[in-house]
């Protein structure tokens, strides 16, 4: 479905991603895991055609994202890290705008919009202006936007950041639901999130792909739990890994408590 080959992106002298290659098969939920600044967003921006790569190729369903951009982009629904919403528009007008740009036929448009809004539970806010919505609803409208046009691939960049625990669970359920009909890629720097919804994990560190397998296989090959694997692969040493693992767990539970 997606074929990424030798992808490199330089920002000046800094290599944001370095010779990245992987394949995304149809009908899985992929987790793109890595610490902050590892190059997750950059990779996703390149796959979706928002950003050009310095070198390498991205092939989406047989179409090159650079050369056959229009056809390739039609296969993708993308939610960037910050939901790209027009604050002055009403939710329904915004979604209608997206549907028009994506070339959804006029006859079935309203039906599809209601369908998408029901899936993302945004029907209640359809008539409200986006700037007045809560963060959770904005995120959902962002996801709804990605679903319009029924793209085969859905790419979500950190879809649960800034949400409260209840919202996180709801969004995760939604992602699981989406995984039944679409190929989903989501990124996160939170391990528990990835292991909760994804059946395939890609770990990226310093712009390089360091693991690409199912969670069970990773645990089997390395003979340790995912957390340790993650910390080791992303550059933390063993002793440091243990302490930082504890620190991270504490921090996460503290965060959860604060929320």
């Amino acid at each position: 479905m997606i074929n990424v080959k030798n992808l490199t992106k330089n920002y000046g002298n800094h290599k944001a991603i370095d010779d990245l290659s992987f394949t995304i098969e149809k009908g899985n939920v992929y987790g793109f895991l890595g610490p902050n600044g590892a190059g997750k967003s950059t990779t996703m921006n390149i796959i979706t055609g928002c950003l050009a790569a310095s070198s390498g190729q991205v092939n989406i369903g047989g179409f090159d994202i650079f050369e056959d951009a229009m056809k390739a982009k039609k296969l993708i629904g993308y939610l960037p890290e910050i939901p790209p919403l027009y604050p002055d528009m009403k939710v329904i007008d915004y979604l209608k705008f997206i549907a028009e740009v994506k070339g959804v036929a006029k006859s079935g448009m309203m039906e599809e919009l209601f369908d998408v809004m029901e899936k993302t539970q945004t029907t209640d806010v359809a008539g409200r202006v986006i700037k007045n919505l809560s963060k959770g609803y904005r995120q959902r409208v962002g996801i709804a936007q990605a679903l319009i046009g029924d793209p085969e691939i859905i790419i979500l960049d950190e879809p649960t950041v800034g949400l409260d625990p209840k919202q996180i669970i709801e969004i995760r359920d939604l992602i699981r639901e989406l995984g039944k009909e679409h190929t989903v890629i989501l990124s996160s720097h939170i391990l528990s999130e990835i292991s909760a919804v994804c059946n395939h994990i890609l770990i990226i560190s310093d712009g390089k792909l360091v693991a690409d397998d199912t969670a069970e296989n990773l645990e089997k090959t390395y003979g340790m739990d995912l957390e340790t694997i993650f910390l080791r692969l992303t550059g933390a040493t063993d002793t440091f890994a243990e302490t930082s693992a504890e620190a991270v767990t504490e921090e996460v539970s503290e965060d959860a408590g604060n929320l």
Binding site: T48, K71, K73, I82, Q145
Partner: peptide, 14 residues
């Protein structure tokens, strides 16, 4: 500023 340019780039629009 409001990052909606990313939306425009990702949509099938030249």
């Amino acid at each position: 500023k409001q990052k909606t340019d990313q939306l425009l780039y990702a949509l099938p629009l030249s």
